[in-house]
Amino acid sequence: MIIRWWRAVAGSDAVLQQYAAHLERNTFAEMAELPGHLGATIAVKVGGTDNELVVTSLWSDLDAAGHFEQGAFDDAVVKPSTQKLLKSFDLKVEYFETLVTTGILDKD
C-alpha cells in the first residue's frame, strides 16, 4: 500500500472547516472513484497552531497513486481557489510505501 502525504496550514478554524468540507464533498468523492484508491483523511495537528493539517490518501500501489500526476510525480495538485484559501501549503507531496500494517488497514 502507498500513502500519499501532503501538508498545509489552514490558519483560522473557519478556513479549516471550509477546506475539510470541500475535501469531503469534492476531492475525496472524486478519489473514491479512481482505481486503486483505498481511502483518505484530513487531520489537524493536536496542540498545533494555525490549524496545521495533513491530507493523506491510501493507494493499492504507486501506479494508482499517480492518478494526480500533472507535472512531476511529486508535484502537489492545489487548485487556485484552494491556494487562495490556505495560509500556506507544500508544493510537493510525499509517498510512503507501507511495510507493516495492523488493525483496520490489515483487512483484506
Rank of each mutant, 00 (worst) to 15 (best):
V54I: 08
L105V: 07
M1T: 05
S81A: 15
K92W: 06
Q83K: 10
R7P: 02
F73V: 08
D61N: 14
F28V: 06
H37L: 03
E24D: 15
N26Y: 14
A10D: 01
V55L: 13
D90C: 03
R7W: 04
G48M: 00
L34C: 01
K45D: 09
W5G: 00
E97I: 04
I42G: 07
A65I: 00
A21S: 12
A20P: 10
W5Y: 14
V100F: 05
D75T: 04
A21V: 05
D74S: 07
D13N: 08
T82Q: 13
D75F: 02
A32L: 10
W59T: 01
L16G: 08
A20L: 07
L38C: 07
Q18C: 09
V93E: 07
K79N: 09
G39I: 03
G11M: 03
L23E: 04
I2R: 08
M31A: 13
S81H: 15
K45R: 10
N26C: 13
K92R: 14
E52Y: 08
V9Y: 09
F89R: 05
A21L: 10
S88V: 03
D50P: 02
A8V: 07
T82N: 12
R7F: 02
V54E: 02
L85R: 11
G11L: 04
V46M: 05
D106F: 11
S88F: 06
G36W: 10
W59E: 05
